[in-house]
Amino acid sequence: MIRTASFAALLLALFCTAANAAEPDTQEQVQSDVSTREIAIESNFTGIEILIFGSIDFSDEQTPAEASYGVITVVRGPTEPVAVTRKHRIGGIWVNGPGKSFATAPGFYAVLSSRPFRSIASDDTLRQLGIGLANVDFGRYTRGHHADDAYRAALVRLRTEEGLFQENDGGVSFIGRSLFRANVTLPVNVPIGHYTADVYLFRDGKLVSKNVSGLYVNKVGFERVIYSLAFQHPFLYGLLAVALAVLAGLTGWYAFRRD
């Protein structure tokens, strides 16, 4: 009887410990934010560098050298359907083949990590979270052969060459034992829309905390006026363009005429 009671007490104690471990107060948590929440595209826009910063709360690391934590930051831009085509030679000229289309290819995707991200978490975990260019979900293909990975590889390669897809091992750097920062370069051709910056905190290969912040890329001022006019009042926009061209032509003729 006493034995049973003590066993029950032991079980209870074990449960309490387990509950305590799951309690957010004592577990490591990651907090993060981005330096610029609104990115304005004006006529002098040539790309921008944003800073993602954060800290690990309740870090139990004594010195940075322990390096038991791994931080991975993923910045995802708006998705859009795209087709990837390959040229074939037909009758001496190079012609676009039917290719393969992807429903939700991100217009921007960057992975930054505090050390090579494959050493931070297992391939399965990375695949589940969509971390890494090999694991990005491009959505269902709507044409082409599903087994042909060459088109997917080409999409990744072309976007990487444009700076729209990035993998940067060591892009997240620690300042002291709990503060970290990551610089992400958005090139000039970034699509407009809503972006998310996800910060994942791993410990010993396990995801222990995640923080999401958002940013918005939009055209402002003159660029915005032109853009919205072109898409909301296209006929008026066309008339304006013709009128401006005629005006420029008249001005040019008047300025250069010889009397």
């Binding site: 032109i226 072109a230 898409f231 006929f235 926009y237 066309g238 061209a245 001005t251 040019g252």
Partner: peptide, 28 residues
């Protein structure tokens, strides 16, 4: 120009302005 602007939204007014200024001078 009007047809492309209305149907395809492919007219860039800023680029057209830059080109037209150069073009008018060169044309004379």
């Amino acid at each position: 120009t009007l047809l492309h602007a209305t149907l395809n939204h492919t007219l860039d007014l800023l680029l057209a302005l830059i080109l037209v200024i150069g073009g008018v001078i060169g044309g004379q």
